[in-house]
């Protein structure tokens, strides 16, 4: 440790030299505090995370859940890796995982869940329900509390009662079941839009509040992503839509989006 400060001498020949020494010592201590372990130093040197951008969104209805994401993967926010990335993963007939963030973690998280669902199917001879999977995902995220999966996860599907379900997470497993959710770079743009259109939080009591049908949810999704793609550079290329309706097979659609 480069620490040359030895205390302030009362009657030194040059008071400034002591001050400079003190400043230098402070700087050195700030740059490399003694309490830093080699592990911490290393983490600061090499960042294990990268961000591939994009956005996902999910809306729960009475008997359906609809999810959407864009399909762009980016590098350093400006360079497009691929225009056909998969941010949503169909885990079984009633569960869909939509994630943004570090794509390596996204893939790992998907693999962990698929493996657990595989085991569940063998043990119980049926597919896991979305409520259970939601809890499982939360535990898995929290398990990596101190080296988190850097993902904004949204889990959606049809629950045991045939109702649409959307679960929202933070990277370390905080979980909430809500009516609609978004995650990713355009989250700050999509959420207020849905607050207005579905949550009706900004509307007066007299205003017309249309019921949330599948058609309306679908067109809201399209609007949300089209406007997000106008302003947010990592969101674009295609809208990937997944619709889960109670008692029906999952439907997937791709719609074009801005490519610039």
């Amino acid at each position: 440790m480069a620490c040359s400060f030895t205390g302030i001498a009362k009657n030194g020949p040059n008071p400034y030299s002591e001050m400079f020494a003190f400043k230098a010592a402070m700087k050195a201590a700030e740059a490399e505090p003694v309490w830093r372990t080699s592990r911490i130093i290393e983490r600061q040197r090499w960042n294990p995370y990268s961000f591939e951008g994009g956005s996902t969104c999910a809306i729960a209805g009475e008997n359906f859940a609809i999810l959407a994401s864009d399909t762009r993967l980016t590098q350093n926010d400006i360079n497009i890796l691929t225009r056909d990335g998969e941010k949503m993963h169909i885990l079984n007939d009633s569960i869909v995982l939509a994630t943004t963030g570090f794509y390596g973690d996204v893939l790992q998280l998907k693999k962990v869940l698929q493996s657990r669902l595989h085991k569940y199917r063998f043990d119980y001879r049926s597919d896991m329900s979305v409520d259970l999977c939601a809890e499982l995902l939360s535990r898995n995220l929290y398990y990596r509390r101190f080296f988190p999966y850097y993902t904004g996860a949204v889990l959606a599907g049809i629950d045991e009662h045939g109702k649409g379900a959307v679960f929202s997470y933070d990277p370390i497993g905080c979980i909430e079941r809500i009516a609609y959710s978004a995650s990713g770079n355009a989250e700050p743009m999509i959420i207020p839009f849905l607050d207005c259109q579905i949550g009706h939080v900004t509307l007066s009591d007299e205003a017309e509040k249309p019921p949330l049908t599948l058609e309306r949810a679908t067109s809201l999704m399209k609007d949300a992503f089209r406007s997000a793609a106008e302003r947010e550079i990592t969101t674009g290329d295609k809208i990937h839509l997944i619709i889960a309706e109670a008692g029906k097979p999952i439907v997937q659609k791709f719609l074009p989006l801005r490519e610039d």
Binding site: S50, L81, D84, G104
Partner: peptide
């Protein structure tokens, strides 16, 4: 298939 240093993988 592309794989980046951090394990981010995709097909193109």
């Amino acid at each position: 298939g592309v794989i980046t240093q951090k394990g981010c993988a995709y097909q193109v």
